[in-house]
Structures are given as C-alpha cells and as structure tokens.
Design a protein around this nucleic acid. Sequence first.
DNA 1: TGCTAATATTGCTTTGCGTTATGAAACTGG
DNA 2: CCAGTTTCATAACGCAAAGCAATATTAGCA
Lengths: 316, 316
Amino acid sequence: MKLESEHLEILAMIVEKGGLTEGADALGKSQPSVSRTIALLEQRVGVPLFEPGRRPLRPTELGASLARLGSRIHALNLEARQLVDRYSKGQAGRLRIGGTPIFMDGVIASMIAEFQRHHSDVHIEQSYGYGDTLLPHLRNGSLDLAILPMSAAQIPQDMVFVSLLAGRNVIACRSGHPLTRKGTITLADIDLFPWIAPPADSPLYRDLQRALVSIGSQDFRVNFSGGTFASIASVLAGSDSLTVLPYSVVFLTRKTMQLEALPLKIEHPNRQLGMLFAKESATAPALAPFKSFIAEQCRQLEARIQHDQQVTRRRG
Amino acid sequence: MKLESEHLEILAMIVEKGGLTEGADALGKSQPSVSRTIALLEQRVGVPLFEPGRRPLRPTELGASLARLGSRIHALNLEARQLVDRYSKGQAGRLRIGGTPIFMDGVIASMIAEFQRHHSDVHIEQSYGYGDTLLPHLRNGSLDLAILPMSAAQIPQDMVFVSLLAGRNVIACRSGHPLTRKGTITLADIDLFPWIAPPADSPLYRDLQRALVSIGSQDFRVNFSGGTFASIASVLAGSDSLTVLPYSVVFLTRKTMQLEALPLKIEHPNRQLGMLFAKESATAPALAPFKSFIAEQCRQLEARIQHDQQVTRRRG
DNA sequence: TGCTAATATTGCTTTGCGTTATGAAACTGG
DNA sequence: CCAGTTTCATAACGCAAAGCAATATTAGCA
C-alpha cells in the first residue's frame, strides 16, 4: 500500500481546521478537490478516516493518528521551504573559506564572528593554505573563497580577485620592546634579537627573508618557527623576538596581543591582501553577502589604519 | 514556492543510494522518471541540488540538507503505512469497552491485561455502565463493545449478543465464614449477617433483592453500599457480611480476595453474561480479535468452573 | 582516443489534481 | 417536524505531471 505524503498533509489540515471546507480554504484549494483527495486516501487505506454521516466531519481514531503524522510531515515540508528561502537569500548554507593562516587568524576570523551575528545559519568551514593549494580547491569547487595576498600579475584568467587591504608587512615585536624606544634603528640593532619564523612554505617566510636582505642583514637567528598566529603572538609578547607580520594584523591585535610594529620601512612586493574566487557564478548564495561584508569591514579597517597613522605622524 | 514532499523523498533516496540510477531502482521507478523529477525540483528551488557535470551525481550542500529533510519525511510516511497496516490487522488502534462494574473488574480486566500482552498497541478505553446507558453509546458509536448480563428476549434488533458465561449469581462471603461450615443453610442462619449492597441501579442489586425473596427473607440489613468491586471484596474479606456476586467473579478471585460462595441455590433470571455490539461492521478492526480473545478466555474459564465443581461434588 | 556507464532528453500515454456546477445529506431554529 | 442553511459528495472536463521506452549526451576511465 502506498500513501502519499501530500495526502497526509491535506488530511492533517482538515483535521486541524475541523472541517473539509475550512481545510480546503486553508490549503488554497477548492472544497471538491480535497474531498476527492480524502476519498482516494480512504480508499487506499481501506478504513474510514472520518466517521460516516457526520456533518462537521469528525476524524476516526485512525484518521486522527494519521493526521498527526501528516502534521509532522507538513512541518518538515515547511522547514524545507524555509531552508531554500533562506539559502537563496544567502542567510543559510555553508561557505568554505580558505586563506593564509596568519591573516585568517589575525584579521578575518573576528570578521567572520561579526558576520555570523547577522547570518547565524551560515556555516563557515575555514581552512588554511597558500596560493598553490588554494587555487586548485577553488577550481574544483571544494572551496568557495580564498583569502590571500596576490599581485595583479598573478591573478588567474578564470578567477576574480578583490583586494581588501594593502599587503604591507612590518617587523613586529612586543610592545615595550627595547627597539621601540630608539629613534632610528640600524642593522646592528636588529641583529641583537632572534627571529620568529612563519611556516617555511608561506609567503610571509619569503617576505621575512626579503625584508632582512632589504635592510642589509645576511644571516638571522630563528628561535621559534612552525607555530600558528596564536603561538607566534604569545612568543612575541613574552620575549624580545622579532617577526614579520602584515601590518593589518599587528594593527588589529596590538591591544590584546601586546604587539607593536617597528618604524622601519622594509621592502615588499606590490601585493594586496584580497579575496579570490571563481568567475562563474554557480556558487553558494551566501558567498555574495559574505564577500561584501568582508570588503566593507576591511574598508573600515583601512580607514582606521589611515586615521591612526595621521595621528601618530602628527604626534611624532 | 511549493515543494512537494514526494520530491523531497525521491531526492533523499537518490542521495542515500548515491546515484540516480540506483535511487530510481530503489524507488521502483524508471531512471528517466526520477531524473525529470529532480530537474523539476531543481527548477522550483532555483538552486542546483547536485553539482553540475559530475557523473556519480554528488549533492550540493543545499541538496544534502533537503535530502535529510526528505529522509525524515519518508520515515514518517513509512510510519503511517505501518500504522495503517497494524490497524487493519487489529494490532493497533483504540477500543472503547463498557460493562457492568463488578464483572469488568472481577473478570474482564485481567483478560484485557492478557490481551494487551499480545496486542500492545491496542489502547483500551474502559468505562462502566448498565444496559440502559451502554446501549445508546453503542448506537451512536461512542462505544465499540458492551459487556453485560442479558436475556435472549432483551437483545435489540440492531445488535448482536454473544454469550460468554452463565449469568448465575451466588451469595458470597469471606472464606472461613461461619456459614461455610454448616451443611445446610436456613433463612434464619442468613438473617444473622449484614449485607453488602451493589449500586442501587445495578442488575446485581435487583438480583440481590430477588435472591433474598426467593429464599424467603423479606427484610435485610445493609451495612455497605456504593463501592466498586475492590471495596466490596475488601469489606467482604474483612467481615462476616454477605453479598451477591456472579459466580464467575467469585471463582476467579476467591484465591486472591479470600472469597467463597455459599452452597445455596438462589433464583435468578435466565441471563447470560456476554458481549453486545452493533450489527453493522464499520467498527475498529481490533474489535474482532478482542471479541474472539475474550470468548476463548471465557470458554476456558467455564471449563475450569465445570471441572472444579465436579471435583467438589466428588469430594463433598 | 575511444569505451563504458551514468545521466539527460524526447515523444507519447496515463494518472491524478485542479476547477466549476450541481446534487445529497446533516444540522438548525422555529 | 419542517424549511433553510451549511457541509460534504459527485460529475464533467482541462491540464500539469508522472510514468515508460527509446535514444542522445557526457563524465570517467584505460
């Protein structure tokens, strides 16, 4: 015997509304339509679902039981509709975001938290990686968005890159570090302190090397490496070590993490930190609001950085 | 937007089976059929439910979520089918049984307990009443079965009466009562003891009056009345009071309740304790097994009574 | 590059749902 | 008990959708 869920839902509505006519009304159907549906259902069940010869149509014991099940089915159906609805509006679903570890931890994570305060049903799956690992994932659809540093020349044909922040790196140390009290910093000053190295395969590591070369240091002493941002920040705050970090990361976390950027210009490639994603738009609807949210947050962050620098310059 | 529960169930099956072809197989439909169903569903949802251009058809995030809901809908649908199935076989549902209080409590209740050991999903709603109140309830469908004493002449045209046990009443007393030790009992012996009277509107009460008239007693002293069987049995067991009870009740409960029947023939109308129900068969399917179960139980009880009497007679 | 298996498409028939119009039965108030 | 009203069932018919077989297409794979 095959019962259609649709029929059970209709039965439930009739029982709930207490009558065939009202039930049909609530369902947006005509009265004869639901009448026949019930007749068909009764025929399939083989047992009357309503007591015969009663005008305000009263359900049988079995009819009432089936109606309860129909009601639960209807609730699930409704849930499905709402899910589709919210998903289409970008208020639900899953977003898979990958990015470079330090920037994700230091800047993006807190923005994600804020984003989820408005879009609580968007599940964000975060992963870490660099350009060479993120790009294939974007291409085969296992990643919706990558957040990484990139120069204009590097942008692949099939991708779109939206820049968020200047990719400027700085040499970071704990606040109150001896070097912060000096007016001008020389190579000899720098060479006194050990370095924290980011993961060896990261752009940051290459930036660190380049930066040191740019200020004349040929050799450098590494006393901590391989950690994520949380570890790096802890070691940095608890020692006189130095490291290279994106300025945005230092700026955002300097209060809580007790960090500071050294007033030392270092060379770095002309890169932007930004969002990379596939050109074709068959992506999760929640991606659009997420992208614009992150972009807006970064605009505000950029403005705060600008403002802060002006104040510092004026005071300095 | 309107999603059909049917479609969600199909989606669930496809996702579960891991492929369109296998899903179609499991559903007993052709592959093109479910293919088009999914196409239609996707069109209504407006978002792809399966990743495009993948041969072992992999669901999208939304597709997977909807499939989970579809699966739950399917489970409820299955539950509905099973409910109908068990209901049709008389293994589920609700039975409303009404009967005379003493007989229901003393004989039928324990049989109901036994019945439910085999039919655990049959919910029995018991109520009490006499012929004049039970009959209308049977007629308007608010009662499925009545259990009461009735003579052949009383059976209504539109009802069927199945007799269960002889309606013989006896005078009951506690076991070890002074009267049980006497060989022959006279009116004068009886008059020494007070009576427990059943409810004044019950057939038993009229039987009590008739019985006492039949043995010559004009007047009798009542020291307890209005109680249900449990109270009557307690008072009976704890005093030297007498009362009138169906022999079947005394027989079944004499061990646990410490009762005994006096070896005294009393006159009573030619009635049978039996089951009364409406002739037309639009009743709960569970009624049929219940009726035959009760009938069989009473046959066995009758046989035990017969056997017991023969043994008693031989010994006596 | 071709083979194989999985999915889509096509063309057609049947089923069932939707409607309006209308008939029949049950409740209501006098 | 008898109109009147309400409520449900039935009839006739158009249409959307489900069903199938046959066939085209395409992703994986060797």
